[in-house]
């Protein structure tokens, strides 16, 4: 964490506006008989950065995957940038091209070069020409600090580099919202910080971000709000200061003690 970054933290905290980016109300989801998401109510404002944590299996991934319809919720409403998510394919595609997602396992396209990974969706979804898309892609690859790897294939890169390419790939679609599902969990310890740095810089640009992560340092530094989930419910949510200093529920305290103790 650089000193300058430390200083920026204060002004970061005020970036959120009062325009709504994502509104979820009374969202429920089941996998078969298993009730994964229970009455989720969550409003995310534009520019807000939210960190979601909670024990494994508590439904964090499912929650953010519902936002871009990788999972289908069964009842309740999800409105993203004013568009309601329903089975209308047009709405789904509109939302997906506005919402970027970064996965735990990177999921880069192994048969395409780094540059092609980044230009594919702009060309096919946004109708960019190849050269336009390449210019944008190189800009974002520079932002994530790997322009020199553009001609390589994902398999030739380290995990940290792959995850940064994945972030650049999402950014090339110029999304309004970025979803991160444990972006650093599959990485070797020495590579975690290079990805977190990129995410931190992204936060500085005022991007709306929802991050499922157990990197509590990142949460303290960047988040406007920390959400704690357990058994498919949002159990507690608060500013990071309050959340880490004065957790209200015993369940939260226990979780925090487990996660911070090692």
């Amino acid at each position: 964490m650089s000193l300058e970054a430390e200083k920026n933290t204060e002004q970061l905290k005020s970036a959120a506006s009062d325009e709504v980016a994502i509104a979820m109300s009374k969202v429920n989801k089941w996998f078969g008989d298993f009730h994964v998401l229970k009455d989720i109510d969550l409003t995310v404002f534009k520019g807000e950065r939210i960190v979601i944590c909670g024990p494994s299996g508590s439904g964090k991934s499912t929650l953010i995957r519902c936002i871009n319809r990788l999972e289908e919720h069964q009842n309740g409403d999800i409105i993203v940038n004013g568009t309601t998510l329903d089975s209308n394919l047009k709405n789904i595609h509109a939302i997906r091209s506005d919402v970027g997602m970064v996965f735990q396992s990177f999921n880069l396209f192994p048969h395409l070069t780094v540059l092609e990974n980044c230009t594919l969706a702009p060309i096919w979804v946004k109708n960019f020409t190849k050269s336009e898309a390449e210019v944008t892609a190189m800009e974002y690859l520079e932002r994530v600090k790997i322009p020199e790897q553009a001609a390589k294939y994902p398999g030739q890169l380290s995990g940290g580099q792959q995850q940064r390419v994945a972030i650049a790939r999402s950014l090339c679609m110029n999304p309004q919202v970025m979803l991160f599902d444990e972006p650093t969990s599959a990485l070797d310890p020495e590579m975690i910080s290079e990805v977190l740095d990129v995410m931190f810089e992204l936060a500085e640009t005022g991007m709306t971000m929802l991050c499922v992560t157990h990197e509590m340092g990142f949460a303290k530094r960047v988040a406007d709000r920390v959400i704690f989930m357990d058994f498919g419910e949002i159990v507690e949510q608060n500013t990071p200061e309050e959340f880490f200093e004065n957790p209200k529920l015993d369940r939260t305290k226990l979780f925090l003690s487990q996660i911070l103790s090692h």
Binding site: N68, V99, G100, N107, P110, L120, W124, V125, R169
Partner: peptide, 30 residues
């Protein structure tokens, strides 16, 4: 082809046919 490839293709907004032709088939053919 791992499920993650379909998900990544969907998440960037590709349609089913685009994902199939551009992402899934070239890898599967190999």
């Amino acid at each position: 082809i791992p499920k993650g490839q379909y998900e990544a293709a969907e998440a960037v907004g590709l349609t089913y046919w685009q994902a199939t032709v551009l992402i899934v088939m070239p890898q599967a053919l190999k």
